[in-house]
């Protein structure tokens, strides 16, 4: 009678132990199940700017080639390249070129990153639809984002404080914007973003704040601009023409804040990675580029 509760308790403890062991089961099994005989599985990670594009490519390609499975994840260009360096992905998407130090790290790990230009993109400057400012020059944008201009009235708008919005510093768009706009392409320039710049974890965070805050100014890839944000025309300098970002102006080279979108592979691509990249750069892949608001290759 007396030790009965003890038995019950002991069994209970054992039961808990067994259950927790069993819980590990499916986790351990997943790894082996993921590699069936003749299916190729590609890991593709990186730029958030490109994540929708990469998903659309992967989905369409998967319909034509069901034997190839492509897993796409975002996280930022830096994240994708870091994964490539650590050897956990086959392809890294990047909205900026790989840095020298990243290339050195990769080579130290025995990985040679090979660059492929897969599409073009423009960085659009977006403001609240009620904002009276229609056009800005690159020097003005540099002064705004480095904190030298802090009120919209200084660039021809209402008397309102300027709220700066940017992507997180691991984003390729952030790095590109810093180099090309804040520092105006000058490599010696050490100007930084103003410390008051809000670093948003996602493109959605930027567009949400731009939509509802009349003080806000932000930037994002052309493919992410929704109709309820106002796009500002940009001139490369005082007296230069103000240009709106479109596929045509980017292709003509007249819009000043344009860039390439890249995929980095581990060494020269072979087998299913080669086929996939050829398809992306071919007419079918580039049609998707245009559909999503990016700029297709010539």
């Amino acid at each position: 009678m007396n030790h009965r509760p003890t038995v019950g308790f002991g069994t209970l403890l054992l039961l808990i132990l067994v259950c927790s062991l069993a819980a590990c089961g499916p986790e351990a099994g997943r790894g082996t199940a993921a590699v069936p005989g003749d299916k190729a599985s590609l890991q593709n990670k990186g730029s958030d700017t490109m994540v929708n594009l990469a998903l659309a490519w992967a989905e369409t390609y998967g319909q034509i080639h069901p034997e190839v499975q492509i897993a796409v994840t975002g996280g930022g260009s830096g994240t994708g390249i870091a994964a490539l360096i650590n050897g956990t992905v086959d392809m890294a998407n990047a909205s900026r070129r790989i840095k020298d130090e990243e290339r050195a790290q990769a080579e130290a790990n025995g990985i040679e990153p090979v660059e492929h230009v897969v599409a073009g993109d423009a960085i659009a400057i977006v403001v609240h639809p009620s904002n009276a400012v229609n056009a800005l020059t690159i020097p003005q944008l540099s002064a705004i984002f480095s904190g030298k201009i802090t009120n919209w009235s200084q660039v021809g708008g209402e008397d309102r404080p300027i709220v700066l919005l940017s992507r997180e510093s691991n984003s390729g768009t952030h790095v590109f914007f810093l180099e090309q706009v804040v520092r105006q392409g000058d490599k010696q320039d050490k100007t930084l973003f103003s410390p008051n710049t809000l670093l948003m974890p996602s493109s959605e965070g930027i567009s949400f704040e731009v939509r509802q805050n009349p003080n806000a100014i932000g930037y994002d890839g052309l493919g992410y601009v929704t109709p309820d944000q106002k796009v500002v025309a940009v001139a490369s300098g005082e007296g230069e023409p103000y240009i709106m970002p479109t596929v045509e102006t980017v292709r003509a080279g007249s819009y000043p804040i344009a860039r390439g979108l890249y995929i980095y592979t581990v060494g020269e691509p072979q087998g299913s990675v080669r086929d996939y990249l050829d398809w992306i750069m071919g007419p079918d892949g580039q049609a998707i580029v245009r559909d999503l608001g990016f700029v297709p290759l010539e």
Binding site: G75, G76, G78, T79, A82, E168, S169, N170, P195, N196, T197, L198, L199, M200, P201
Partner: peptide, 30 residues
């Protein structure tokens, strides 16, 4: 807002800040 600014004004509570946890979460992946 995640702006890494020093909250030095009296109204700093009503300005953006960046916390330690948000910094780790936002940057560790990169």
């Amino acid at each position: 807002g995640n702006a890494a600014r020093i909250p030095h004004e009296w109204y700093a509570l009503f300005m953006p800040v960046r916390t330690m946890t948000a910094t780790i979460a936002a940057e560790m992946g990169e």
